[in-house]
């Protein structure tokens, strides 16, 4: 498989108040087109920084990220992102939020409205098109956020602990929806990089799980998740699932003890 996202020797340091902070050190990772990759690692290992670099929101101090062969220099609506915090614009209605990226896509207005309508339906927010985000629950806002990231029909979707703030039930529903939606208009699977600290979430969603080392972060190991799709929520209870979870947990714990 050829790499769609290729991360080569990426290093990142910040100038902190008490000297230089090394966040990432020589990160090397290839993500093939259509793969769902989860990034896990101890807190502060720079996994969020890594997706911000892929998004083009943060510049790497060294190394290079290429997406589809092109070096990443700035954000692009072909690589949209869902953030950990609430990034839904409170001054726009649900429909305006979801259609935000389409305004700059050159798509005719009628087509934009049609796409927005479909997405609203797809994420289960029918009837809320003209509602302001303040009228929505946390889970509903996250759906708006997801739909907005899908609207520009990106080939790459970057997700930085998007469901971290949701309750367990809502989170499971969102995960199932995410699997359903992770296909482009032309039926191709999107390439997804998903940061999480929830190991069950990582295994449930991913084709592969990349485990990072503590700061300065680098890729410790990349594990295959062998379960066929579509996956039922019940696979979490299977022995293989729990064994894989135990293995990843072991990797994270040893790393933390060593430091």
């Amino acid at each position: 498989m050829s790499a769609y996202i290729s991360i080569a020797d990426v290093t990142k340091f910040f100038a902190g108040t008490s000297g230089r902070i090394d966040a990432l050190q020589n990160v090397n990772l290839d993500v093939p087109a259509g793969e769902f990759l989860c990034l896990v690692g101890p807190s502060g290992c720079g996994k969020s920084t890594l997706v911000f670099i892929i998004a083009g929101l943060v510049k790497a101090s060294g190394g290079e990220v290429r997406v589809g062969g092109e070096p990443v220099v700035e954000p692009d609506p072909d690589r949209t992102m869902v953030f950990q915090g609430d990034a839904v614009f409170p001054w726009m209605t649900v429909a305006q939020n979801i259609g935000y990226g389409l305004r700059y896509s050159g798509m005719p207005k009628a087509k934009q409205d049609e796409t927005v309508k479909q997405l609203i339906h797809l994420v289960g927010l029918t009837g809320f098109a003209d509602a302001f985000p303040k009228e929505l629950s946390g889970g509903m806002k996250k759906r708006v956020d997801l739909a907005r990231a899908y609207a520009t029909n990106p080939t790459v979707l970057l997700m930085d602990e998007p469901f971290g703030a949701l309750d367990a039930i809502t989170k499971e529903k969102m995960q199932v929806d995410l699997m359903r939606l992770s296909v482009t208009d032309t039926g191709q699977r999107r390439t997804i990089v998903f940061v999480t600290h929830d190991l069950e979430e990582a295994i449930f969603l991913a084709d592969r799980v990349a485990v990072m080392t503590p700061r300065p972060g680098s890729i410790q190991v990349v594990l295959d998740v062998p379960f066929p799709r579509p996956r039922e929520a019940s696979i979490r209870l299977s022995r293989e699932f729990q064994a894989l979870r135990g293995q990843i947990r072991g990797l994270l714990v040893t790393e933390e003890e060593e430091n």
Partner: peptide, 11 residues
């Protein structure tokens, strides 16, 4: 976060 979201969406 709003500014970053807008940037990734092409604004």
């Amino acid at each position: 976060i709003y500014i970053m979201a807008a940037r990734t969406l092409g604004a």
